[in-house]
Design a protein around this nucleic acid. Structure first.
Lengths: 335, 335
DNA sequence: CTGAAAGCGCTAACAC
DNA sequence: GTGTTAGCGCTTTCAG
């Protein structure tokens, strides 16, 4: 791959002229333009973004720091973020932290060394490392520090919504299967759920679950609930875990929604794939991703962002795992 | 963020000494080492990987070009690839092509400009663009060109395995729901399936499906199969599509595996999530990903790789959607 | 309109 | 052991 000097020489012009032509900055005569383009085409020249970045102090790259690209929520976020970043001319470094502090720290160093223009992070395990970072950072789902804008869906309201939905569908013996304590998002869902129950003076049960997306462990947990059949409604912290619960119930011969109604969180593709389809609280992933990128680009461009917490509304998506409206009619007669 | 000159000045040493210290190349006295480290710590200095790359001609970055990080197969691959790349000190650019030729071409330019050390690509829509590329490339799943090593699981054998399994489980009226024509992988599964059927002198039916991972479209297709209940076994090109088929069947009151047995492909987490759990052909994703990275690193390091096609064995994972062994016993008496 | 030259941050000869 | 210097490929003044 030739460099700009080579192109300049071949085209018989100065190096600055080639630069001006490539970047469309300053005047270049039509005639010269053609000559340069010809040399570029023939040699397969592509400007070196690294050299450019060194000078312009903008690498046009972003770091995406997430626990696990295998998780539907994060891979959907990644898709939206990638698409938007692209629109602004930015390319993404993929950093899977595996919720591992060491790995995240290392990645943070790598991103710094590659001089990424900004970082979008979620569920940090080394929040202190972000305190004196000189790179613009946006966080989603989890709070990192008071100086970093966090974008998330309104998990609290979502949790309350979940409770209220089960309540309205006639459930009075409700269980919440709650996510790991270290995740702000699932913690908020739990809070919203609890508060919803208090408002209706309903006593609810909660069991915790200590790691993300590990179906096996969830199954073990479920076996510890001796009388799961005594509940008539379950709110699970996310869709995949909810699907696992559904499977467990089906295997015990418990009918959904007839015996137990169930509601998840996220509105991932899983909801439509399971039978019966899963009622859930939708997180507006497209909005979350778009906002994250737009705020980050603003920060990169030196704009001041005063807001430190940005909540996006969630939405109930009703499906078969809680009674559909037609069935609710007849059910309410019984109630 | 200071630069190396700044650190050198503050530590009262030469710039080359700092470089030597950082890169552990050449001698530096203990005393000076301490002074330099102190300045690095105090200033939060991180070496500029961009500048370094310009000189060393190795950016220590790789491009991962895949259709869609939302697809479980690709996000699992991405996870393995990321992990291995990391082990060799490489960081990944995430490039979702969406199976879109324009997007892939643009990304190829971006990757070139960022001087990635290598590219791992799958399911390219612009194979010609790879012909004269000056960057090491490894492809997985799909063939790009005769000069590019393709790593994939043995989809042909996998397809045959799927047929044979259904056959052994007693199915004689078998349907294959086949993936898009443009995907080498699903095409090979189809071929293996067909050939397996020929060997047993069984006539099979095949319906095609023209886009990836679009559950809605699959459902529309299914409605066109008037008599799906006449089949007793179905092989679907991947697990998600298979799960969709299962759901469709359940809604029609067809029992799995009693009325129709079903087998998928990939062994993604979906298999364990659906009820009954889904029998499938496992792709050894960990091996595929590890191999892809290792071969790519070899290429980057200038090694010659003569092999142009590397197949990894698939494996049958039997679950409830085809009879489990105990049930097979009694079933074979009937047969 | 165009080119020479300085400088971005780094590495590696090459002297001392 | 260490510092000076050239040069990696680029952009951008600043003359002409």
């Amino acid at each position: 791959m030739p460099n700009i000097r080579e192109i300049a020489k071949r085209a018989g012009v100065g190096i600055a002229t080639v630069s001006r032509y490539i970047n469309n900055t300053g005047y270049v005569s039509e005639e010269v333009k053609l000559k340069i383009q010809k040399e570029i085409d023939e040699s397969g020249y592509t400007p070196n973004a690294l050299a450019r970045a060194i000078f312009t102090k903008n690498s046009k790259t972003l770091g995406l720091m997430i626990p696990n690209i295998t998780n539907p929520f994060f891979n959907q976020m990644a898709t939206v973020i990638e698409e938007h970043a692209n629109r602004f001319g930015y390319t993404l470094f993929l950093c899977n932290t595996e919720d591992n502090e060491e790995k995240e720290k290392e990645y943070l160093e790598v991103l710094k060394s590659h001089r990424v223009a900004g970082i979008i992070a979620s569920r940090s395990m080394c929040k202190d490392e972000y305190l004196n970072i000189q790179i613009p950072v946006i966080s989603f789902e989890n709070h990192i520090s008071s100086s970093i804008l966090t974008i998330s869906s309104d998990n609290y309201k979502g949790g309350k919504m979940a409770f209220n939905h089960l309540y309205e569908r006639g459930c009075r013996n409700i269980l919440h299967i709650k996510g790991p304590k270290t995740f702000d998002a699932t913690e908020m869902r739990y809070q919203g759920f609890i508060d919803g129950a208090k408002e209706k003076n309903i006593e609810v049960h909660v069991i915790g679950f200590e790691s993300d997306f590990q179906v096996k462990m969830l199954e073990e947990n479920l076996n510890n609930i001796i009388n799961i059949e005594k509940y008539d409604g379950i709110f699970v912290f996310n869709d995949i875990a909810a699907a696992t619960v559904m499977k467990y119930l089906k295997e015990k011969g418990i009918r959904i929604p007839d015996d137990i109604q169930i509601i998840g969180f996220d509105n991932s593709f899983i909801c439509e794939l399971v039978h019966p389809s899963l009622t859930t609280i939708e997180q507006p992933i497209k909005d979350l991703g778009a906002l994250a990128v737009e705020f980050l680009i603003d920060l990169i461009n030196g704009e001041d962002i005063v807001i430190k917490n940005y909540l996006v509304e969630t939405k109930l998506i009703q499906r078969e795992s809680t009674f559909l409206s037609s069935e609710v009619m007849s059910q309410s007669l019984v109630d």
